[in-house]
Simulated scan of single mutants.
Amino acid sequence: MLVIHATFPIDPDRRDEALELVEELAEDSREEDGVVDYRVATDVGDPNVFRFFERYEDEAAFGSHAETDHFEAFEAALPDLLSGEPDVTRFDVESASSVEL
């Protein structure tokens, strides 16, 4: 499994526009083959920071996602929405299991 965690600082003046675009991106991405989960949340300490949590079955699914129209639209709009540098981390995961609380 491939896991991506991405953090995007969003310009407060463009937040509503970014939120609309991100909602559409997440919804469309969850429908893709090979996407295990795709979630976006705002940071509780700064509502202008969007955090992406993405899980893919494999590299091919991640590659396919990067070629979709909805991802390309987000990628094209992103430079105008940012207020700083994004941070993206990739995790290659061999196994995962639920943790009981």
Rank of each mutant, 00 (worst) to 15 (best):
E94C: 00
R90F: 02
D33M: 03
E24Q: 14
D87G: 11
E85L: 06
V49N: 13
I4E: 00
A66L: 15
R30W: 00
V36C: 08
S83D: 08
P79H: 03
A26P: 05
F52Q: 10
F71N: 12
A60S: 09
L82Q: 12
T7N: 04
A96R: 09
A60Q: 10
G84H: 09
E75A: 13
R14I: 00
F53A: 13
R39K: 04
P12A: 10
V35R: 06
E27Y: 12
G34Y: 14
P12K: 05
L2R: 05
F50T: 14
D80S: 09
D37S: 11
E32D: 15
I10S: 15
E17D: 13
V93R: 05
R15C: 00
E23D: 09
S98W: 02
R30T: 03
A6N: 06
S83F: 00
E23F: 08
E94R: 06
P12L: 07
S97Y: 03
F91L: 04
E27W: 10
P79G: 10
R51Q: 10
L78C: 07
E100K: 01
G45N: 07
E75I: 00
M1Y: 03
F62S: 04
A96H: 10
V88T: 05
T7E: 10
Y56T: 02
D37Y: 09
V35H: 04
E85Y: 02
V36T: 09
V40C: 15
E75H: 12
E72I: 02
P12H: 08
A18W: 04
A76M: 08
F74G: 05
E32Y: 14
V93Q: 02
S95T: 08
A60I: 14
L21N: 11
H70M: 10
A76T: 15
E94P: 01
D16G: 00
A73H: 08
E59R: 08
V3D: 01
P9M: 08
A76S: 13
F52H: 15
D87V: 14
V22C: 07
V36L: 15
T7V: 14
R14W: 07
S95V: 00
E54W: 15
H65L: 15
D69C: 07
I10K: 14
S83Q: 07
R90E: 02
E85G: 02
F53S: 09
